[in-house]
Amino acid sequence: MTATLYVCTTCKVGEVHEDDSQRPGAQLYRALEARGAPKDVKIVGVECLSACKTGAAIALSQPGKWTYVYGHMTVDDAPDILAGAAAYAATPDGLVPWRERPVIFRKQSVARIPAFTLPLEAAE
């Protein structure tokens, strides 16, 4: 199964841009696409991750795995983002050991969301 690296293309990082293609989130998306997705990862641009105060934001998700949201990403972070995405894709549950995560993933995590199961089970 393939992991998805979502990139918020509308993140402005507090900047004003008349041309949406110049927004930091859009620039990050293009930088990641130019480098190419690692094995078992697809890169998907999305219009908003609702992490505006921590933009530019990305998220990693895969069915049956924990989902992560990361913020304060820049174009310069593209190599580390892709390395982190590859490590995430290689895990059975999305839990990459702490020391094996890129530093930006250790320090710039916004949220960690448990894997969803369908039908959703009631908490006991």
Rank of each mutant, 00 (worst) to 15 (best):
T2F: 08
A3W: 08
T4Q: 11
T4V: 13
Y6D: 07
Y6V: 08
Y6S: 04
Y6L: 14
T9F: 01
C11L: 08
C11N: 13
K12D: 15
K12Q: 15
V13G: 10
G14P: 09
V16H: 12
V16L: 03
V16E: 10
D19E: 08
D20A: 11
D20H: 04
Q22W: 01
Q22K: 05
R23K: 05
R23Q: 03
P24D: 07
P24F: 05
P24Y: 05
P24W: 00
P24K: 03
G25C: 03
Q27N: 02
L28T: 00
L28E: 01
Y29T: 05
E33T: 14
E33C: 13
R35A: 13
R35V: 11
R35S: 08
P38Q: 08
K39M: 12
K39F: 09
D40I: 06
V41F: 09
V41H: 06
K42V: 13
I43M: 00
V44D: 07
V46Y: 04
E47K: 10
L49K: 07
L49T: 02
S50L: 09
A51T: 11
C52R: 05
T54P: 05
T54Y: 13
G55M: 05
G55T: 02
G55S: 04
A56K: 01
A57N: 00
I58V: 10
A59M: 01
A59L: 06
A59W: 04
A59V: 08
A59C: 03
L60P: 07
L60W: 01
S61W: 14
S61I: 15
Q62L: 05
P63H: 10
K65I: 03
T67C: 07
T67E: 06
T67R: 04
H72W: 12
H72A: 14
H72N: 02
T74I: 10
V75Q: 01
V75W: 00
V75G: 07
D77E: 02
D77M: 01
D80R: 07
G84Y: 00
A85W: 02
A86H: 06
A87G: 03
Y88K: 02
A89V: 03
A89H: 00
D93T: 06
G94F: 12
V96L: 07
V96M: 10
W98Q: 15
W98A: 15
W98L: 14
R99A: 11
R99F: 15
E100S: 15
R101P: 10
P102R: 08
I104F: 02
F105P: 09
R106H: 03
R106I: 05
Q108R: 12
S109W: 10
A111V: 05
R112L: 07
R112M: 14
R112T: 13
P114A: 09
A115I: 02
A115N: 00
A115H: 05
F116A: 15
L118A: 15
L118S: 13
L120R: 13
A122K: 10
A122R: 12
A123N: 05
